[in-house]
Design a protein around this nucleic acid. Structure first.
Lengths: 187, 187
DNA sequence: TGCAGCATGTAACCTGTTACATGATTAG
DNA sequence: CTAATCATGTAACAGGTTACATGCTGCA
């Protein structure tokens, strides 16, 4: 059983939003246009083709409202196959490559975990995030020492920003792990 | 006098690296493959076409070493036009859009400012970065209050990460402004 | 009546990914 | 001699951007 892949960050964001609540392409656009999800493209030329691909892959299913009108509103629902694909994607173990090339996707992945992964998995995701960042930071520290003298001030400062950024992610991971632990008592 | 634009993040990174030191396509690849600049694509299918576009635009000029061999080494130099284009690009006033959609480009822009912009401009870039982030953070805080109750735990946490990230940038900007001020005395 | 917002879509173009291709030089 | 590294490139494909296109609905 080969599940075709989620083919882009945008597709992941759309699929995730639909997993939270069924919605139309226009609804997705509104979210990406007017909320903190602004980072994603709200252009119809990106969203409608992405929805079509997700439907072709069998991850979502559109049902038409107002069939009579010329431009009916199509509401998309997550299918079982789509749920499986999302779970599989979110469960993938974090790698150093994720830290280097896809750091921005991490918070996106995390945002959808609530109803799709068990608490244990969410916890270990955060754990792995922390350790991966720490090990990469060690490599960067070595590189920093080697290059320090040849670097220009601005080059050095930009490097520092990258480091601070990673540290912020690591701090966040630890904090959220804590809060997740606390929640245990609530139930 | 219309200067054709730097057409992608990768082109900016390449042009910037060449502005620091003349180099061949292979040299660029090595930097993007093995240093903290790993975030950028080191694939030949991305770099060589980008170099060609930069040369066509007149921003860089390739001179061939070892003409006799079949695969000569081509060293690229920044042209005057290229320097102007870079200066123009780096001088562009930061906007909220830069904060929302191009946050990652900020450190890249900054890394090349040393030899291309006067200290005054570098300083005001950092200043603007701080104020833009602060004003966007206020909007996010409002949104946070409005949505807090309907949000899932993971959704809320992901949102928090975004906020922490922006705060890191703002802190960095203030710190570097300080250090830039201190440097004044050195000269 | 006219304008803003609802709602979906297509087409040209551009950049980056993946995979392939070529051949020289150097170290073991 | 052979493997790794130097060194440059192309071609098919995929996804996003920009701009265009269509027509409905509700409100002032």
């Amino acid at each position: 059983m080969t599940i075709r892949n989620i083919d882009s960050t945008l597709s992941l964001a759309i699929l995730g939003r639909i997993s939270m609540h069924p919605m139309s392409g226009y609804d997705v656009r509104k979210v990406f246009l007017s909320t903190a999800w602004k980072t994603f493209s709200s252009s119809p030329g990106a969203i409608y083709p992405a929805l079509k691909r997700l439907e072709t892959a069998g991850f979502i299913k559109g049902t038409v409202e107002k069939k009579d009108t010329l431009r009916p509103r199509k509401i998309y629902l997550l299918t079982e196959k789509g749920r499986e694909a999302l779970v599989e994607y979110l469960s993938r173990p974090l790698t150093r490559e994720d830290i280097i090339w896809r750091l921005d996707i991490i918070s996106l992945r995390f945002a959808f975990m609530d109803k799709l992964l068990e608490k244990e998995r969410i916890f270990s995701f955060l754990q792995k995030l922390g350790t991966e960042i720490d090990s990469y930071l060690r490599i960067l520290a070595e590189e920093n020492m080697r290059l320090k003298k040849n670097m220009s001030f601005c080059g050095w400062a930009a490097f520092q920003l990258g480091v601070e950024n990673l540290k912020t992610y690591a701090r966040w991971a630890k904090r959220i792990q804590n809060e997740l632990g606390k929640e245990e008592g609530d139930k």
